[in-house]
Simulated assay, not measured.
Amino acid sequence: MSQDMTVIAENLVWGVRRRVIVDNVSLTVRQGETLGLIGPNGSGKSSLLRLLAGLKRPQSGRVEINGRDIAGIPRRILAQQLAFVQQNAATDTNVSVRDVVRLGRTPHRSALSGWSGADEAAVAKALERVDMADRRGQPWQTLSGGERQRVHIARALAQSPRVMFLDEPTNHLDIHHQIEILRMVRDLDLTSIVALHDMNLAAMFCDRIVVLRAGAIVACGTPREVLTAPLLRDVFRVDAAVAAVAGTDRPHIRFQPG
């Protein structure tokens, strides 16, 4: 596997005033892998995700993507390689689905270039991949929450990225759409790093999981290695029974009352 296709973070530190929010984090994400970030509220998941995507600059440490330190890559070039899907992404104006997805082509176009056949093909392919091609002309405001999130993923895909970052993409969606969105992300054949709140969803769809507490990594490994009853008690302060899903090596967490 080519080393220059990985995402590598080395000793990332970031904070606000005197509060350290990301505390000396190092990790590697392999090509094509789906890595989940989980942790209690305030553990630094969203901040780490933004550091990895180049949306924040670390106070120390570095992030390397495709073999290059992202601090030295111009923003427009970086946006051709990386895409970021935020939670509860909003679009106020009543534009069409196609118009929203067209925004993903911005990093690939100069100020003077017209809309090209390659741009149109990228938009069409992105809509197909999220199963929204038949809604291309539909007004944005008429979409459900799950449909809007799929369109935002399509906009990210229209960037033709090699790496996708998603910040709690299933937040406030019903369980059907949560599973649908994460299954789609897993099947995209991209390197994906996704911050998640639901540990069972992380267990179902992530190849590996990083557990954060107070900005630091306390565990990293496969869902089966990481999601254990002692860790859940220690990090999340909950009692749980953890069992393998029949026919798989994926764990399922059953939380205990009290």
Rank of each mutant, 00 (worst) to 15 (best):
T248F: 09
G72M: 00
F84P: 02
A243F: 13
E33W: 05
L82H: 03
M164D: 03
D234T: 08
V97G: 13
H172M: 00
R208F: 08
K56G: 11
V194E: 01
A246I: 08
P169L: 12
V235K: 01
M164C: 10
L201S: 07
S113D: 14
G15F: 05
V13H: 13
P230W: 01
G61Q: 04
R76M: 04
M1V: 06
R102Q: 13
V101T: 14
R19T: 15
I21K: 09
L201A: 05
L157K: 01
V101A: 14
L231T: 08
R148D: 05
N11T: 10
D239R: 10
G67H: 06
A71M: 04
D4E: 10
N24Q: 15
F84K: 06
G42N: 10
Q178R: 09
V25Y: 10
V123N: 03
H197S: 13
S160T: 15
T28I: 11
R250W: 02
S96F: 06
P161Q: 04
V22Q: 08
G137H: 09
V16Q: 12
I38Q: 03
G215I: 13
T6C: 11
S26A: 11
L35T: 01
N200G: 07
E120S: 15
V7R: 11
A154D: 02
V211K: 02
A243V: 13
N94C: 06
T28D: 03
R186A: 12
A216H: 11
A195E: 03
F236H: 00
R102H: 00
Q3K: 11
P40R: 14
G61K: 01
L212E: 03
L48C: 13
I193Y: 05
A202V: 03
H152P: 04
S110I: 02
P139F: 00
A216I: 04
R105F: 03
M5Q: 15
L127H: 06
V123W: 08
Q159Y: 08
D167C: 12
V97Q: 13
V123K: 03
N171S: 15
I73Q: 06
P74E: 09
D99M: 07
I253Q: 00
A121H: 02
G54K: 02
K125I: 12
V163D: 02
V123Q: 01
V101Q: 09
M184N: 09
E10W: 00
T93I: 13
G44L: 10
S43H: 09
M204L: 15
H177G: 05
F165T: 11
G54N: 10
P107K: 04
A241I: 10
T91G: 01
V100H: 06
N66C: 12
N66V: 05
R183M: 05
R183Q: 15
M5K: 15
S160L: 03
P58C: 04
L37P: 02
